Simulated assay, not measured.
Amino acid sequence: MERRNLSKVKQKYFQQHGGWLLLEKIKSSQRFGFTIFTKQQIEHATNNFYSANIIGYGGHGTVYKANLRDQVVAIKKCKIVNESKNKEFGKEMLILSQISHKNIVKLLGCCLEVEVPMLVYEFIPDGTLFHYIHSKRGASRISLMTRLRIAQESAEALAYLHFSASPSIFHGDVKSANILLDKDYTVKVSDFGASILAPTDEEQFVTLVQGTRGYLDPEYVQSCQLTDKSDVYSFGVVLVEILTCKLVVDFNAPGGEGKSLSSCFLLAMKENKIQELLDEEINNQDDMDVIMEVVELAKECLSMKGDERPTMKNVAEELGRIIKHNQYSRGQEYNHEEMETLISEASPDIVNQYYAYVSIDKEAEESIAIGR
């Protein structure tokens, strides 16, 4: 009787979370790379959720490292699920499972035989951006250009969710702790615990504020309506975090209530004291032009009004432009130094020919500029 009752409970949860819809889709498509795991499989893989297997905590659940079907995975045991979304859960898993982007953690499967569904993700072994930028040793190893590449890849991933996923997906909890890095600092955006599909009518808007303090969009806090611009605001905080290596909420600030990094950043910009906030590892005059471009971009992302913020696609493109321009400038500088060295070792005839060529080349550039 106990076994029968347990089986009925499992079936109830399975149906409640839209399991039959998922099963139907999996059976109808051989290419559908998604698995529905049983409760027993998950418990065995995590050794009954043994505490030593915990690799992370979050506002939406606990993440365990596990070995499932001879593959190392990350299993997220969620805390709660919105009851109004129970019936949509299977449908949303269907959409999330089909996300395919090099900078987004792949959702491999789920378990629906439990009160709150559990999610199975690919395992990324080398920690989070939060760990690297707030660890003294970690931050010192990440150059400015590597930080910008991490920011760009993260922005590309979010832009994919907003513009390429169908329907669009809003992440809802963008923060440095949800940006995983592999040994080459390649980004994998993770944790869709707060994600929602883009609402198609007013009834589908989120009515409960979710997310992490310090990263939350002020407009979202007031309206309870998560939008793509909410992710843009949170990403702006991450940009500031990357540049400063400071915590997003400082509980050691006077008053003890915690001062937000975003407000400190905007105040520093207003008072022209932004250099005082920058991480000392990247705070040098040679890179200041590049840093100030990123600072201006972060300021736009942190606008109090969502309509005034750029889209994630705009942000990704701007970061790409900044990186390419900086690489080009450095390449030009390197080529100039290399050429000067070669000239110093060359014969007088070759030197005269080179400078004559440079003079002609400059005249051509000026003519083109005037023509434009």
Rank of each mutant, 00 (worst) to 15 (best):
L277D: 13
V232R: 01
I75A: 01
E308D: 15
V221W: 01
E318V: 00
I124G: 06
Q210W: 01
D307G: 08
G18I: 03
Q11F: 06
G18E: 04
S100M: 06
D70R: 06
Y185A: 06
S84K: 09
E300T: 10
D307T: 14
L277A: 13
K136A: 04
M269W: 02
D286A: 12
S100R: 13
S84C: 09
V105D: 02
L180D: 07
E280H: 11
E2I: 11
S260G: 02
K10C: 02
S164N: 14
F37H: 08
E308I: 11
T227F: 05
S344G: 10
A74Y: 00
R137K: 12
Y354P: 00
N314R: 00
G56P: 14
T62N: 07
N82H: 10
L119Q: 06
K76I: 13
T35G: 03
V81G: 09
N82F: 06
E203K: 06
E24L: 00
K313P: 02
V240C: 10
F123V: 05
R141T: 13
H171D: 10
L119N: 03
L158T: 03
M339S: 13
E296T: 05
T62Q: 09
L108C: 11
D286L: 05
S263E: 04
K259L: 15
L277H: 11
G58L: 09
N47V: 03
D70E: 09
E333S: 14
V72E: 15
A159Y: 00
G56R: 13
T311Q: 11
F235E: 01
L94V: 05
K106E: 07
M292Y: 15
Q275C: 15
F130P: 00
E88W: 01
E363D: 14
Q16I: 05
Y57K: 14
E293F: 00
